[in-house]
Design a protein around this nucleic acid. Structure first.
Lengths: 106, 106
DNA sequence: CAGTATCCGCACGGATACTG
DNA sequence: CAGTATCCGTGCGGATACTG
């Protein structure tokens, strides 16, 4: 049931991060490890279900690692893997472009 | 009915190009002006409807310009605007990252 | 050729309730 | 707290047919 990687490299990238929520998750995790609840609070408007689903995908893609602590109440922390962190330049370029675009449009 | 720009710049960019087809259209148009039919043939698997819709969106976003020739049979050409072309670095970074990711995964 | 118009199915996201 | 489970509505993309 694994999704095939597209032939075109730019599509590969898009498939992994081209998603309303995934970029926001990545951006939040660039600062460092965060708990599920903190992520949820930081990202405005995600439901649990969708956030969980996105994190799972990113885990299978190797972008994010998930650490569960055997505590009560449970604690789960998410961290970027090296691969995940290597997306920083991509996000940066997108951010810069977005800023310039917004300025131009005002 | 115009879509609001999100607060976060990276979301702005994503809203404009974070779409399976839009990146492919952009990539194809980076080479220069193309006719509708050529675009359709170049992009594997798009339906007319969806291609048209995407081009319209990109036109309203100011990424693409559309030129109609008063001929029979009709000819319509699409060209990147300056703003559209300014996305090149973004696509390039995404492409490079995608290539590296694919290598790593093999 | 380059569209518009219409119908249709289903995948996806939201809301809610329940659990280890 | 950090999830799963379930139901449900709609929106988007595909297919097809028609047109300037």
């Amino acid at each position: 049931m694994k999704k095939e990687l597209p032939a075109c490299p730019v599509e590969v990238t898009l498939q992994l991060i081209g998603d309303k929520w995934k970029v926001l998750i990545l951006r939040d995790l660039m600062d460092g490890t965060k708990r599920f609840g903190v992520l949820k609070k930081g990202i405005n408007g995600v439901s649990q279900k969708v956030l969980t689903a996105n994190l799972r995908m990113m885990e299978t893609s190797g972008l994010v690692s998930r650490k569960v602590y055997a505590e009560v109440p449970p604690r789960v922390e998410y961290t970027l893997t090296k691969t995940g962190y290597s997306l920083k330049p991509v996000l940066d370029v997108m951010t810069v472009w977005g800023e310039e675009y917004k300025e131009k449009m005002e």
